[in-house]
Design a protein around this nucleic acid. Structure first.
Length: 293
DNA sequence: CTCCAGGGAC
DNA sequence: GTCCCAGGAG
C-alpha cells in the first residue's frame, strides 16, 4: 500500500482527463459491442494497428447479430493481418453466443461476460468497466507495470496472478465509480504512453513524486528473467500466418499442392495445416483447404 | 506451462 | 538481433 493511495488515483485521473489519446472506442456514443470488439482486437496487439480494423469492423457489423449472420470465414478475412486469427473466430463465436443467450445484447454482468468465447479476466472487466461504468479493477500488462513501479517500487511486475493483480488494483481503486473508471483507463494509458516497459519517461510522469520505484533509486529488476521468446523466423507461427494469408485470399479451396511452396518440409506443412484445422481456422476437403464456412 | 501473428521500436 | 504489445485457451 502506498502512503496515499487516494493521491495516486487522483493524480492519474486528473492526468488522464488531459492526456488521454482520443481513441475512437472511448467516445461516449460507442456501443458495448463496439467496446467488446476493441478489447478482442487489443489483446496482444498495439493500438495503432487496431484502429483502422476496428473502424471497418464496426461499420460492417454494428451489432452482434450482424456478425453472427455471416460465416466465420468473413470474420477471419476482415481480421486480415491483425495476428492471432483465432481471436476472429472467437469473436464470431461470442457474437453467436450473444444472439443465442443474451438477445443480441452485450451483458453487463461479469460472469456472463466471462462465459463468452475468447473473453477472459481482463476483457470481461474491461467491458464491464468501460462499456457500462461498473466499478471493477481492470488490470492489463500496462497497469501491472505501473503498480509494480509506483506502489511496489519494482522495475517490472512479478509473476502474473489474476487474484494478486486484482487485489493490488482494488487497493488503490477509487470508491466513486466514475473516478474508478477513469483510474482504470488512466493507469493503462500511463503505462502505454509514459511508464513504458523499455524507456519510461519519468520526466513527464504525473505521479513521479509519489513513485516508489523512483524513490528507491530505480532498482533494476531482480526477479527471474523473462524467458526469451521463441524465434519467429522459421516458426510454426510464421507458417500458419503464410497459410492463412493464402486461404484469406481465395474464395475456393486451396489445393495442398498450391500450399507446398510455403515450406520445403512437406511433413511440417501437413502438421501445421493440421493445427489450423484443429483450431477451426481451416477446413479440409477433397479440393484442399478453405476458411470455415 | 505452451502455444498463438505480426509489426514496430530500439 | 531482442523485446514488446489493452490476453486467452488447452
Amino acid at each position: 500500500m502506498p502512503r496515499s493511495p487516494a493521491a495516486l488515483a487522483d493524480r492519474v485521473v486528473a492526468w488522464f482527463a488531459t492526456a488521454a489519446r482520443p481513441l475512437p472506442w472511448r467516445a461516449a456514443d460507442v456501443s458495448p459491442w463496439a467496446v467488446l470488439v476493441s478489447e478482442f482486437m487489443l489483446q496482444q496487439t498495439q493500438v495503432s494497428r487496431v484502429q483502422p480494423k476496428w473502424e471497418a469492423w464496426i461499420a460492417r457489423w454494428p451489432t452482434p447479430a450482424a456478425l453472427a449472420a455471416e460465416p466465420p470465414a468473413e470474420a477471419v478475412r476482415a481480421w486480415d493481418r491483425l495476428g492471432y486469427p483465432r481471436r476472429a473466430l472467437w469473436l464470431h463465436r461470442a457474437a453467436t453466443e450473444l444472439v443465442q443467450r443474451h438477445d443480441g445484447e452485450v451483458p453487463n454482468d461479469l460472469d456472463a461476460l466471462l462465459a463468452l468465447q475468447g473473453v477472459g479476466p481482463y476483457t470481461a472487466r474491461a467491458v464491464a468497466a468501460f462499456a457500462f461504468g461498473a466499478r471493477h479493477p481492470v488490470v492489463d500488462t500496462n497497469t501491472r507495470r505501473v503498480l509494480a513501479r509506483a506502489v511496489d517500487g519494482r522495475a517490472e511486475a512479478g509473476a502474473p496472478g489474476a487474484a494478486r493483480d486484482l487485489a493490488a488494483m482494488s487497493a488503490v481503486l477509487p470508491e466513486d465509480p466514475v473516478a474508478a473508471r477513469a483510474f482504470n483507463a488512466g493507469a493503462m494509458e500511463l503505462g502505454a504512453t509514459v511508464c513504458t516497459a523499455r524507456m519510461p519517461r519519468c520526466d513527464a510522469c504525473p505521479v513521479a513524486d509519489l513513485c516508489a520505484w523512483r524513490a528507491a533509486g530505480y532498482p533494476a529488476h531482480d526477479g527471474p528473467k523473462r524467458r526469451t521468446q521463441a524465434r519467429f523466423e522459421g516458426s510454426d507461427r510464421q507458417l500458419r500466418g503464410r497459410i492463412m494469408r493464402e486461404l484469406r485470399g481465395s474464395h475456393r479451396p486451396v489445393a495442398r499442392d498450391e500450399l507446398a511452396p510455403l515450406d520445403p518440409d512437406a511433413a511440417r506443412l501437413d502438421r501445421v495445416l493440421g493445427t489450423l484445422v484443429a483450431d477451426g481456422l481451416a477446413v479440409a476437403s477433397d479440393d484442399g483447404y478453405a476458411l470455415p464456412g
